[in-house]
C-alpha cells in the first residue's frame, strides 16, 4: 500500500480520562485506504523535547467524512503535547504504515484490549462486523476509569469488562475472565492489543485451544518505514521490524511467546 505524508486538521479533542484523549482529524486531501491494525506516524510540532514522530494505531476511519480518529495516551512530552492540541490546528501524519489484522469471514471472533490497547480494535471490530463475524469484545483495565469507549464498542457485538479492582465488570485481569473458562472456546480467531504480559497470557490461552491469536505490538521506533531497524522484535525467523513486518503478528511467530515461558499479566505495565 502506498504510504503518504498528509496534513490533517483537528476537528475535536475529547478527553476520555486523566491521560487519554480521542482526536478526530480531517484530512486536507482525500484520505487513502487503510487497513484495520495499520498505524500512523504523527509529527509532534509543539514539544521542543520531542524529535521523532510518534506511532499511533488507526482507531477509526470515516471515508465519507474524510476523517480518522486517533486514541492518544499521554506517556511523555510528545504524547502530552499531542493530547493538548487545540481544535483547528494542523497535524502532519505519515500513513498508512505496517500490515493489518487478517479479517476472518462469517465466524465467531474475540477481541481483547487492555488499557489504550483498545485503540486498533474499533476499526477492526467494524471490519469484522462487515464481514459477517460474530464479535465479542473483552476490555480490561485497572479500574472503571481505565475502561475506554466500552459503550462505543457495543454496536459491534457483546462487550465484556474486567477490572483489577472490580469497579466495572468482573474482578481480576482479562485473562481470568469467565469467557475463558470454557473447555472449548467458540472463537475461530482471537485479536489482541495491550501490554506485552497481557498479550502473552492471551496467546497462551489461544495456543492451548489451537485458536490463531493475532497481536499488535508497540515497540519504540524511529522511522516507521523499515529504514532504521530500531523497532525489531525477536521472531522464529530472526529480528523483524514491527513497523513494516508488523505491528500485527501471529503470536506463534514470536520468540519467547510460547506457553512454556513464564508470564505475568498486568494492565498498563
Amino acid at each position: 500500500m502506498k504510504k503518504h505524508i498528509l496534513d490533517f486538521r483537528v476537528i475535536s479533542n475529547q478527553p476520555l480520562n486523566d491521560n487519554h484523549n480521542l482526536l478526530e482529524l480531517e484530512c486536507n486531501e482525500a484520505m487513502p485506504q487503510m487497513l484495520a491494525g495499520q498505524f500512523a506516524e504523527v509529527r509532534i510540532d509543539g514539544s521542543p523535547t520531542t524529535y521523532l514522530r510518534r506511532p499511533f494505531s488507526i482507531h477509526r476511519v470515516d471515508y465519507a467524512k474524510n476523517t480518522m480518529h486517533l486514541l492518544i495516551k499521554s506517556v511523555g512530552d510528545g504524547t502530552r503535547s499531542l493530547a493538548n492540541i487545540e481544535t483547528g490546528n494542523s497535524v502532519n501524519i505519515m500513513l498508512p504504515l505496517g500490515n493489518g489484522f487478517p479479517i476472518s469471514e462469517n465466524s465467531e471472533v474475540l477481541l481483547v484490549g487492555g488499557g489504550c490497547g483498545v485503540a486498533p480494535l474499533w476499526y477492526l471490530a467494524e471490519q469484522l462486523n462487515k464481514s459477517d463475524n460474530k464479535v465479542t469484545m473483552l476490555i480490561g483495565g485497572r479500574s472503571a476509569k481505565d475502561i475506554l469507549l466500552a459503550d462505543e464498542y457495543s454496536r459491534f457485538g457483546k462487550v465484556l469488562i474486567a477490572t483489577e479492582d472490580g469497579s466495572h465488570g468482573e474482578t481480576g485481569m482479562v485473562t481470568a475472565h469467565s469467557v475463558f473458562r470454557s473447555e472449548k472456546l467458540p472463537f475461530s480467531a482471537i485479536y489482541c492489543c495491550g501490554p506485552d504480559g497481557m498479550m502473552k497470557a492471551i496467546s497462551h490461552i489461544a495456543e492451548k485451544q489451537n485458536i490463531p491469536c493475532f497481536v499488535s505490538l508497540e515497540n519504540t521506533m524511529a522511522c516507521g518505514i523499515g529504514a532504521c531497524l530500531c523497532c525489531v522484535v525477536d521472531t522464529h525467523q530472526g529480528n523483524r521490524c514491527v513497523c513494516t513486518e508488523g505491528p500485527v503478528f501471529n503470536s506463534k511467530e514470536l520468540k519467547g511467546w510460547s506457553a512454556e515461558t513464564e508470564v505475568g499479566c498486568s494492565i498498563d505495565r
Partner: peptide
C-alpha cells in the same frame, strides 16, 4: 542479526541507536 531490542533512545534534538 544485530543487537537485541531496545535499540533506540530519543534524546534532545536527536537519537541514540544501537542497531
Amino acid at each position: 542479526e544485530g543487537n537485541p531490542y531496545p535499540r533506540m533512545a530519543e534524546t534532545p534534538m536527536g537519537m541514540l541507536n544501537a542497531v
